[in-house]
Nucleic acid binder design. Sequence first.
DNA 1: CGCCTTACTGCAACTCGTCGCAGTTGCATC
DNA 2: GATGCAACTGCGACGAGTTGCAGTAAGGCG
Lengths: 152, 152
Amino acid sequence: MTAARSRDRATWGTVREELRARGMRWTPQRRQILQVLAATDGHITGSELLERCRKLDPATTPSTVYRTLDVLEELGVIRHSHGLDGREEFHVQPVAEHGHLVCSSCGASREIDAAQAAPIARAFRRTHDFDIFLDHLTLAGRCAACRAAQAG
Amino acid sequence: MTAARSRDRATWGTVREELRARGMRWTPQRRQILQVLAATDGHITGSELLERCRKLDPATTPSTVYRTLDVLEELGVIRHSHGLDGREEFHVQPVAEHGHLVCSSCGASREIDAAQAAPIARAFRRTHDFDIFLDHLTLAGRCAACRAAQAG
DNA sequence: CGCCTTACTGCAACTCGTCGCAGTTGCATC
DNA sequence: GATGCAACTGCGACGAGTTGCAGTAAGGCG
Ligand SMILES: [Mn+2]
Ligand SMILES: [Mn+2]
Ligand SMILES: [Zn+2]
Ligand SMILES: [Zn+2]
């Protein structure tokens, strides 16, 4: 984990106040989930998060973890996209908005930043009057290496 | 269901020979699944297919249906993309290759045809040497109506 | 037609995730 | 510090989908 990629301490600390401001509660379970997320770089699935929480507290239950992920996404603290298998993958914030480009053959994954996605967003805005959510975008396809390997 | 959108009788009929050619077998279960798919317009999920098969034969089992979907996708008879919830949605062939544009707020969905996707495909081919699979693409976002509704 | 190989089916157990409900607890207020 | 309300947790049942395995049957061949 690098400081550049994860929410800094001060930002994570505001979650408690963001919850209170909405009439929601700060519980030991939520504190622990946030602690694990703060130590996570990049992406994490619900079941991975559950597993890591259970290392700290084996009594952690699935429903609490999944419901907390929903709450945190409503607050904007995390966002999700989907892997090739369709499972949700959560991003900790405030990483720059980005999509993913994944090779169906080898699983290699690259991020698509806002600049790269801008032409696509503009095209659908113009032709369909539709705003694309880059954070939710996963493009599947075949990378150069896999295309070359199969070409023979 | 319209003739224009579903695989015609002759094309569905070739599936039996395509299976045989690969050393696979033509079974009553597969015949029935294909019968349901032939009567399906547009998209269908695995559990929807299971449910429809069970109307014809209540003894239909999940594993056979899901495994048959895998086989048919390998043969190229169907393809899948993912709904906003991540679940697989199968397309019967030979519908023209297309992606989807789905509004996260109201669920409205439009198809993206090859012509509309061509600029995107070209861009990623050029900048990342990566071939996009249009059939697998689902773009999430917000439609004009929902944007207007929320603007106030 | 009957045999044999092996693809396939159905089952049971499992994973991931969701949901209603009853009991618990955060936290605001006095 | 005690009280009370509602948000939250944990439970148990459930839905969707996957997988190993043992028994079944498709279909090629004699
Ligand atoms: Mn997929
Ligand atoms: Mn999603
Ligand atoms: Zn690859
Ligand atoms: Zn909409």
